[in-house]
Design a protein around this nucleic acid. Sequence first.
DNA 1: AGATTTACTATTTTT
DNA 2: TAGTAAATCT
Length: 707
Amino acid sequence: MSVFVLREQPSLSHRQIDYAKELNQEQLDVVLGGDGPCLVLAGAGSGKTRTLIYRVAYLLERGVDPSSILLLTFTNKAAREMRSRVEALLGAEARGIWGGTFHSIANRILRAFAEVVGYTSNFSILDHEDARDLIKAILKDLKIDSKARRFPSAAVVQDMISYARNVQRPFADVVALKHPNFVPLVGEIEAVAGQYQRRKKLANVMDFDDLLTLLAGLLEDPVHGRRIAEPFAYVLVDEFQDTNAIQARIVRGFAKAHRNILVVGDDAQSIYAFRGADVKNILSFPDAWADTNIFKLLTNYRSTPQILEVANASLAHNRDQFQKDLVAIHRGGDKPKLVPTASTSEEARYVAEQILALRHQGTPLCSMAVLFRSSAHSQALEFELMRRDIPYEYRGGQKFFERAHIKDIICFLRVAHNPQDEVAWMRVLGLQTGIGEASAQAIATQVKVTTEFGHILLSSHAWQIPKRAQDGWREFQAIAQEMIDPAQTPADMIRAVTKSSYRDYLEREYPNWRERLEDLEQLALFAEGYQEVGAFLHDIALYDDVVAGREGGKASPKDEERMVLSTIHQAKGLEWDTVFILHLAEGSFPSRRAIAEEGMEEERRLFYVAVTRARNHLFLTYPMTSGYDTLQFNQPSTFLEEVPPRLFDRVEIREADGYHSVSIRRTHSNTVWSDGSERWNDEEIIEVDRTGEEKKPRPLRSFLRDL
DNA sequence: AGATTTACTATTTTT
DNA sequence: TAGTAAATCT
């Protein structure tokens, strides 16, 4: 039996073998190689990813053609990670499998079927910001003054349009559900939505939702759908709890012919409701697919029992939940530490101290991560890490391809490749002095009639250029000339723009223009791998992490590794030995919005995801005060209050002794009184410095004086 | 008068 | 950084 071959692979770690032990042989055959629909409901750290990897490996071992395997993941990173793990198991033959996000797979397929859906194959892809800009332009065009008329803002309109398409419900329903006060305006908002759809098609651009909608349509087409889906004999979907209605349609489209579908997920980790994700997709999977085999994996191979206890205790407060307590396989371990700090800077200092101490004790930096609800919460820590030269990798917040200067350059290439791309035109024109929104729009509508980029240099005399915009327009033409003149490779074009007057613009506009120029050179270097502008643009439209995220601190030659700073959303599916969760203050995490809009259950699941990322050490911190000019007093997060205090080791920072050694006061235990209330046992207070060594007590200094 | 630039305030999560 | 209000151009 192939499974045994897998189990005895010397490259398999202990934990992987434990996974195989959890199911009996018959069940393993179904999960890994069985035909028909299969649903694996797996708790955090119980082996979701391994299930997918094993099935792929098992199929390949049985001689299945790799290109008949389609692996749908939530992030590109997850797809790559899985591919490399399967390759490590079985070698290069895994290379042919189709793996990626719904969006990237849609991108690949739609390039080949562009004409069928009314586009040409050089279509551009709008990111979130581009799409909002287009809607803004439409509102202006329709002379809708959203302030005066109490009309929803472009961002709100965009959100409603996107949500309606993702949950596959009529627009009016979504308005009623998400923004009841705009119900009287439904007709008008719908007109904007229609205009948006038309403008995109005219500009030969798709937004993220178009990618999914058009793919779903194609898959349901009797002729094309068959042609696309037929080759995929095996469909695997990761993080199924985070799929929405349109994604469920796509999954059905791909898998309905062969019915060999495996989905894995955990309803407790559904954290994308704001994007239309619906836990019902996973709970009703057996209804949608007859004869589904269901398996539950409830053993946690990742975390210590102390960490799991906190996770379980928190999740118990959710009602809409499948009750399942995870059981740890690990023994021993410390209680998670609960650390209130005087301020955000003290929080940052404490975390940095602990990181140094743990590293001193032998934990490599790459097995530590700091997680936070919102990217803004990491700022103080980033300064602190930079100051101490602790190398880190930042995930979350702005992506490389979303940085203003990167997008500027990309838009130059976009107009060259797809001159109809109105959105890109608006951006590049607006960069010139003297050209604002209005002049840019005037020029863009005329220019985009051209099908050949080179023509804009010749035929401009025929166009009406507003007077104040003429200098800027000439400047743009000069740059365009540089771009198309000697060579056509994307790297050459990027360097041409970087050398042009755009460089002066950068120097003028940004104090950190040198860094930005370096970014642009990095982009050019990356582009050298491409001969053709189209191929380059298509790849970077969705594969953001091809270029590493923001980095700070210099990695010493000895340890190249960096620690990770990440939003919780981006940390999903990952794990570290030590995890810090920052800013667990009411209003921040849970966010004010979640509290106000009854989004607490989802928010609690987010907390659950964060806690279950940790293998051995977990630190939960929150600043008792925050704010930069006004002082704000924070309450500890609901999520901390809900968990019985005895599950934590409470740390109290008493003394800030310069910047480099914060001493802490720690209480080890607490007392449960006969009436059920709990009290901290003050007798066990000790002071330790950052290396964990005990210190003599010093007088208490009030945290307020520290500010 | 309309377009553009500048100065200011408050920040959720993502393909 | 985005959205907005006030200041400055044409």
